[in-house]
Design a protein around this nucleic acid. Structure first.
Lengths: 246, 246
DNA sequence: ATCGGAATTTTGGAATGCCAAAATTCCGAA
DNA sequence: TTCGGAATTTTGGCATTCCAAAATTCCGAT
């Protein structure tokens, strides 16, 4: 009887497998990531723990922990006087991050070649096809998200958990710069061509070619992002301080 | 007068340049890292926040933040019921981490070739020479530390801050396994040979050869650590639960 | 002795309050 | 008007406290 009750509980309890109810720290960290990526919290913004906590409807205790996580992700930095602010890395730092990202994705592609399934290849190729097909119709954000999903699918196919995790962190750091870069028309054809090269190499499960294609792709991302920074630099002050929102 | 006082303050205030006095979080995080690496907090140990906080002489607030940092570093994990414990990764996970570490060091070596100075090369070679010279006299820990310093010096020479930081985190995760591995006599000659190959490639500033040598070195680290795990596995239960110390 | 479940203890999550330091405002002298 | 420094406000660091949930202990029925 008790046995039966237990099984019933397991069935009805949590639909998703046993998760212990999200803490405010996790919720806040996710929300902050979103606010930063969407620039509701703009780069360089000074953060007031009290204001932000009340804006999120929580106390400072879980917010502080969330900020600590985001700091580890490189999205939040602390000034010398311990005031948190949204990270606003100069181009040089972004370029360095992209170099590491290139090595990570190259490794992922290499590993993926030895274990990727046809279905996974089809998924990767599917993203690319959607991008090509929707050339004129997709919004910049939609195109960009397809691009990101394609890269993530390749990294996921590596089957290497630490690699996937580290890649995810670099992705978060670089999201804004890459998004801005993706919005320019220049280099878009090259991007698609590079994607085709990646998929071709991956389809042949050629680890060396896949790694090279991915590294090349990230290298051209550096060039594209440099152009974004140069335009922004000529248009306005390089590091405009922004204020903290309510 | 006030001007003079200010200058005097600057001179006598902080010997190291303007650091805002370490917080308990930082102190605790460093201390915890040390306790884990030295196995005062053994792998798999359950942690009681209250006990650990009082052992460190601080309250739970900064300790919790420190644990959050260590969790991001992969040294602390949280059970499904949110109880923190020292990470105790199975071999498979360590192997995956080593693969990523190999790619990171290969990239670092590659980058280093384009900018490393003769002095830095001499420093790297110096560690290796000390290891070879002290073959019989150095303690296992001393040899291991030289080994680690050599690798760190190469990564530092890359000049890529995010890479250095990510490498440092992987290093912390893998420290224990690599230390255990280094204590076995088997493979020690191979290690030294591989080090020589790395230094030779680096001295010639050959990025491809350096990258290959570093990857090979990390690949053999996987083999060596596998042996450690296999011996441990035959000697005793694979995942012995350990208790939390006072 | 074994088992199940109630009672108890222990646990981490989170809010709150206080403090010192930093940032800002204010105001009078020049 | 400008400037310097005192007064005030704001800030993050940290300890404390309460609470719900989890873990453990306890105890009686079998």
């Amino acid at each position: 009887m008790s046995r039966k009750a237990e099984i019933a509980d397991l069935d009805t309890g949590e639909l998703t497998l046993a998760r212990p109810r999200a803490t405010l720290v996790e919720v806040a960290a996710d929300k902050l990531r979103e606010l930063i990526l969407l620039e509701k919290l703009p780069a360089g913004a000074q953060i007031s723990e009290r204001d932000l906590a009340s804006a999120l409807g929580i106390s400072r205790t879980p917010l502080t922990r969330a900020l600590t996580i985001l700091e580890q992700d490189g999205l939040i930095e602390y000034s010398v006087t311990r005031r948190p602010q949204v990270a606003n890395p100069p181009f040089e730092e972004i370029a360095q991050n992209l170099v590491v990202m290139g090595a990570l994705e190259a490794l992922a592609g290499e590993l993926a070649c030895t274990r990727i399934t046809d279905a996974e290849i089809a998924r990767v190729a599917g993203y690319q096809q959607q991008m090509e097909a929707g050339e004129g119709t997709l919004s910049p954000l939609e195109s960009f998200q397809l691009d990101m999903q394609m890269h993530e699918a390749i990294v996921a196919a590596s089957g290497n958990a630490p690699l996937i995790d580290t890649h995810r962190k670099y992705n978060a750091r670089l999201w804004r710069a890459r998004f801005q870069s993706s919005q320019r028309r220049a280099g878009r054809d090259q991007t698609l061509a590079e994607h085709r090269a990646i998929i071709a190499a991956l389809s042949q499960r050629d680890p060396v070619a896949t790694a090279i294609a991915l590294r090349r792709h990230l290298a051209s991302a550096v060039t594209n992002i440099r152009n974004v920074f140069q335009d922004a630099g000529t248009a306005r002050s390089p590091n405009p301080d922004t204020e903290t929102p309510a």
